[in-house]
């Protein structure tokens, strides 16, 4: 699949934003750390900025953005519509949560709880946009929503840890928890790679209806690339993919993990967060670049 940069930015930054908001509101609900009102507000604003950057980026991907508002209408069937609805719903809820912080309403637990649920839900729903597509086996898999949720948790968590450390909160326990989460996510991501090492089951024979015979394409019916080529036939050299995978594993997991284990202070955590975000961009790029749409079969690929 063609990795549209706007979509990469969207899922990564918004993911981190939802993660951070999730940590903030979870802390509200469960009361692990006691934070000052300004601290909570600043963290909340940072989360919302990340989310908003992501959402704005996502509309860049639309070819006809003037109709973007219509995407609230098909929440009954469309994961993308659900995402849109929930993403917008989050704003008033988050505003109420902010008000509750500021005015120290007693209903704060309710608003924080809703923020937490919504954040998780949005990330899940975003993931389901991809995971629901039967046409791309690398996406149509339970690991996809799982990983999306974990990536939001660890990237938001790293931001959370950095912001706490920056506010002088003791984060040694948090660092340990995060380290475990990062390691776990890394393992799942490895599992994902291993999972898709085996070739898929849908083949050109099924796409064309000629079973048990060799089928090859002679002519796609257009000699210059079409929309379908641009969208689905995205191809990069295997060596580049491998390089990207290494860089991704290093940036997303190895660097943050080392930081969390050995030098989790405000500065290093910020650095680790930035590196992880870069890693996640690479991860998302790979998520697209390595995805094989079945339309490729109709353009001559033997199996997806």
């Amino acid at each position: 699949m063609h990795p549209a940069f706007s979509v990469l930015i969207f899922t990564v930054t918004a993911g981190a934003g939802y993660g951070l908001l999730g940590w903030l509101s979870a802390n509200e609900v469960f009361g692990f750390w006691l934070l000052s009102v300004p601290t909570k507000l600043v963290i909340g604003v940072i989360a919302m900025v990340l989310i908003s950057i992501g959402l704005v980026a996502s509309t860049q991907h639309l070819a006809n953005p003037k109709n973007a508002w219509r995407s609230f209408s098909r929440w009954r069937s469309s994961w993308l519509s659900r995402e849109a609805v929930l993403a917008i719903m989050l704003y008033p809820i988050a505003a109420l949560y902010a008000a509750a912080i500021y005015f120290t309403w007693s209903s704060i637990i309710l608003w924080a709880g809703l923020c937490l649920l919504l954040s998780l839900a949005i990330v899940f729903v975003t993931a389901m946009i991809y995971a629901s597509l039967k046409t791309i086996r690398q996406w149509h898999h339970p690991l996809v929503p799982t990983l999306y949720l974990l990536f939001a948790t660890i990237s938001g968590g790293l931001a959370w840890a950095w912001l706490l450390a920056w506010n002088g909160v003791d984060i040694s326990a948090l660092a340990n928890v995060l380290a475990v989460l990062v390691a776990f996510t890394a393992l799942l991501k490895l599992g994902y790679f291993i999972c898709f090492k085996v070739p898929g089951t849908i083949d050109i024979q099924s796409a064309t209806g000629f079973s048990n015979q060799k089928v090859s394409i002679l002519d796609a019916g257009h000699s210059a690339p079409s929309f379908l080529n641009n969208e689905f036939m995205y191809d990069v050299a295997q060596t580049k993919l491998v390089r990207m995978r290494w860089m991704m594993m290093l940036a997303t997991f190895a660097v943050p993990l080392c930081t969390l284990c050995w030098v989790p202070d405000a500065n290093t955590l910020f650095g680790a967060f930035v590196v992880m975000m870069a890693g996640l961009l690479a991860e998302r790029w790979l998520f697209f670049a390595e995805a094989r749409h079945v339309v490729r079969l109709l353009h001559g690929q033997q199996r997806v």
């Binding site: 070819a63 006809n64 109709n67």
Partner: peptide, 14 residues
């Protein structure tokens, strides 16, 4: 239509 391409992704037949 807002041109999000999602339906094209969902279509197996191009």
């Amino acid at each position: 239509c807002m041109g999000c391409n999602l339906c094209a992704w969902a279509c197996p037949y191009g």
